[in-house]
Computed example of a mutant assay.
Amino acid sequence: MSKWTEADIPEQNGRVAVVTGANTGIGFETARALAEHGATVVLACRSREKAEAAADRIIQNTPSAAIETAQLDLNSLESISGAAEAIRGRHDRIDLLINNAGVTGLSGVTEDGFEVQFGINHLGHFALTGLLLDRIAAAPAARIVTVSSIGHRFGRIDPDNPAAPTGNAYAKSKLANLLFTYELDDRLAHTAAIAIAAHPGGASTEVFRYSPAAFRLPNLAIAHLFGRTPAMGALPTLRAATDPHATGSQYYGPAGLFEIQGYPAPVKSSTHSHDRKRQAALWEVSEKLTDIHYLG
């Protein structure tokens, strides 16, 4: 299947999908496509107003779409807990959790004192996934899809101190997304759920909006050069979430040059991302920092 597109998404009727950062960019396109194929989609976003505006945009295009919103600020463990409680109150099961939201170019710490990119991109999704895991395990064939980046290849995590600041904070957070995915999939072996990762290639999204110009402008230029719209950037996530042939611990990205452009296919991640010692160490420190302890 060399050119997997939205037309290849199977019907999603009866499935419940939670998409973080769904008000814009890749998250919005992911939510839109899932809703158009029949899923009930929860737009989990920091701004309730922006989430509701995104919901209106989807419904205008697809009046039959089943859209809900949840206020989720991955900068705050308190907000994550509240969002998870609200989602759990509405749904007995969750078929798809799309850990999409992310930031880059920020400095400082989260409300809970974590380096902000590591805190939002990794620890926030680690906490949310753990708080929803019983609902995910209750679904017959659930998937947890976490969005990483080509940039994970520049990330480094000290297995003896995974939370320590090391080099490129964004790249580290994206490496953490993959270490988390592979460890999670292993831990889900006793359930029907699987964990998969994806990356969008060189897509033009708002993830760069807070980045310094020296970082933001070249990335946007690459996206423009290769025609990577948010809709194209969402395809690897959508394939990971819906392709009947996808399996746990796979990693989807564009199949073209340097994984910047092209249609989604299984791709390889860095050697560091498959390091079992780093996976286990990151998991342990993530549980300690978030005080979220998974089932099993």
Results as ranks from 00 to 15, higher is better:
T166S: 13
W283H: 09
H37Q: 14
A213H: 07
E115L: 05
P159G: 14
A53M: 07
G155S: 10
V19Q: 00
A223Q: 11
L178E: 04
E78A: 15
N168H: 13
T290F: 12
R88H: 10
A198F: 10
I260R: 12
T229Y: 06
A265R: 13
V19D: 00
T104I: 13
N23G: 04
L220K: 05
A86P: 01
A53V: 02
T20E: 02
L225V: 12
I136W: 08
L77E: 05
G233N: 03
N13I: 08
A70F: 01
L178D: 04
S2Q: 12
P165N: 09
S2C: 01
G256R: 11
A55D: 01
A189Y: 06
L178I: 15
A241M: 11
E49M: 07
A70E: 05
E49C: 02
G167W: 04
A70R: 02
L184I: 05
H224V: 06
L295M: 11
P159V: 14
A66L: 12
G89A: 12
R135I: 04
V18F: 01
M1N: 09
Y294T: 09
E78W: 00
E29D: 12
G119T: 08
G151V: 03
V19N: 00
F126P: 03
R278G: 09
G151S: 13
T104N: 12
K277Q: 15
Q279W: 03
L106T: 08
D160L: 13
T5A: 05
L282F: 14
D243S: 10
E284Q: 15
P264N: 04
T181Y: 03
Y170F: 12
G108F: 03
A223H: 11
Q117N: 05
T229N: 08
N75V: 06
A66Y: 01
R88Q: 12
T271A: 15
A44V: 06
P218I: 07
V145N: 03
E287H: 00
T191D: 08
A171L: 03
S148Y: 06
L72S: 02
D95M: 04
D56M: 02
S107L: 00
R48M: 13
I59G: 00
P230Y: 07
K172C: 08
G130N: 06
T5S: 14
E29K: 04
L106E: 12
I144S: 10
G108K: 04
T242K: 09
A189T: 11
A55F: 02
E11Y: 00
A35L: 07
L175R: 03
